[in-house]
Amino acid sequence: MLLAIPKSEIIERQSKFHSSMADRKIDCAILFSVTDIFYLTGFHFHPTERPIGFFIDPNQKTHLFVPALEHEHAEEFANVDFVHSYPEYPGLRHPMEYFKDALVKADFTGKVVGYDAIGYGSSMGYRGPIVSDFLDAEFVSIKGLIEEMRFVKSSTEVELIKESCRWGNLAHRLLQKYSKPGLSEIEITSKASTEATMAMIETLGKDYKPHGNTAFALFRGQVGEMSAFPHAVTQNIVLKKGDTLVTGAAADVWGYHSELERTMFVQEVSKEQEKYFQYMYEAQETAFKAIKPGVPCSSVEQEVQKYFKEAGVQHLVQHHTGHAIGLLGHEAPFFDLGDQTIMQPGMVFTVEPGIYVRGLGGFRHSDTVLVTENGMEMLTYYPRDLASMVCY
């Protein structure tokens, strides 16, 4: 079982990135995006106030710039030609001074330099100059270039996402099992997530690296009337009979995400709950039928919005139908009226049209799907029908 992206695929990504640079007549490039650095190097790190950057020089050599505390870590795990480091931030000499030295030595002066951000950014107290303040070069933004490379997943990436789906499925089964009146959402989610994680690590063994979250299932505060807020936060609510529940479950495998969400009910379902559940269910079915290669992402949203309008519930819709998923929980492109990106085989999306009724609850399933040559393949496989969504 493959539980990581092999070095050969990472090197292939670097080569593809360099070819894209050459097409744009860019000599060299600087990246600060954590996700894109991981995508191109396999090096997973926690960004803090200490700058970390990746750069490709005019001779196609790859470099990683890290604080000293990450130097050995980077040499062990990063697929790059050179690792550079600096003592500390802010330090007696600012890290960007060391970064300047590395760029000048790598022959960046006077070149056309692509960048995703013109300087390092952090909400953890970092302050420092932008690269154009200290490097004499021509700068060209390539923001979004690697994100677009990530649109279409390789077969290896798809397998990692499928593995994520398997363990999200287990976590959700446990969540449903433990969803009883009188128990708090934190108690239920903690128990389900811990049990699923223990099963996951015992099954996959020492080769499993989450690079994110292990198996989990949660309510995120969407319990009872609070489920009518699409992105509520955990409230420590105690479940009661008849509550509408909107759930989520997943597990990260080498940084790759999946998404499984369900609308469930505690022990009983009212006629009104059933009515809105059915609207949501049919909207998701409508989306599934609209997903196919060669058409824009917006076409999926158009079909879903058409269904909602005909059903007379368009006023209860608060968000678009879905988004791509991979190394990030939310990635571009989106099933949105404003996204004209053409769907291609290998793209992975969530499909999650929802409706929200104040005083009653929210109604949203989310499934992770793969665009295929002829349509789509469902990667998540938890039951979706109403009868299966009642927690006894």
Results as ranks from 00 to 15, higher is better:
residue 58 P to C: 01
residue 92 L to F: 14
residue 278 Q to S: 02
residue 374 N to I: 12
residue 126 Y to A: 01
residue 357 V to P: 06
residue 235 Q to I: 15
residue 22 A to K: 15
residue 261 E to I: 04
residue 147 E to N: 09
residue 356 Y to D: 02
residue 232 A to D: 15
residue 350 T to C: 05
residue 35 T to K: 11
residue 54 F to Y: 11
residue 179 S to M: 03
residue 14 Q to D: 02
residue 78 A to W: 12
residue 216 F to S: 00
residue 198 M to G: 10
residue 379 L to T: 01
residue 229 F to P: 08
residue 133 D to H: 04
residue 391 C to G: 11
residue 127 R to N: 09
residue 67 P to F: 13
residue 267 Q to A: 10
residue 176 Q to H: 08
residue 301 E to T: 04
residue 241 K to Y: 09
residue 174 L to W: 14
residue 111 K to V: 04
residue 50 R to T: 02
residue 368 T to Q: 00
residue 145 L to E: 02
residue 146 I to N: 00
residue 21 M to K: 01
residue 28 C to P: 09
residue 124 M to Q: 13
residue 162 K to M: 08
residue 170 L to V: 11
residue 11 I to M: 14
residue 310 E to F: 14
residue 149 M to L: 07
residue 126 Y to M: 00
residue 369 V to M: 12
residue 347 M to I: 07
residue 296 P to T: 03
residue 265 F to M: 11
residue 11 I to H: 05
residue 67 P to G: 09
residue 364 R to S: 06
residue 349 F to M: 00
residue 60 Q to G: 10
residue 391 C to T: 15
residue 107 D to W: 08
residue 196 A to Q: 06
residue 136 D to C: 07
residue 192 A to F: 12
residue 129 P to D: 03
residue 384 R to C: 11
residue 254 W to R: 13
residue 283 A to Y: 07
residue 321 T to M: 09
residue 217 A to I: 00
residue 247 T to E: 07
residue 346 G to Q: 01
residue 48 T to Q: 12
residue 37 I to C: 10
residue 253 V to T: 03
residue 322 G to Y: 09
residue 379 L to F: 13
residue 88 E to S: 11
residue 93 R to W: 12
residue 273 Q to W: 08
residue 198 M to C: 10
residue 348 V to L: 08
residue 51 P to T: 02
residue 167 W to H: 02
residue 197 T to I: 04
residue 227 S to C: 04
residue 117 A to F: 03
residue 332 A to T: 10
residue 101 D to F: 11
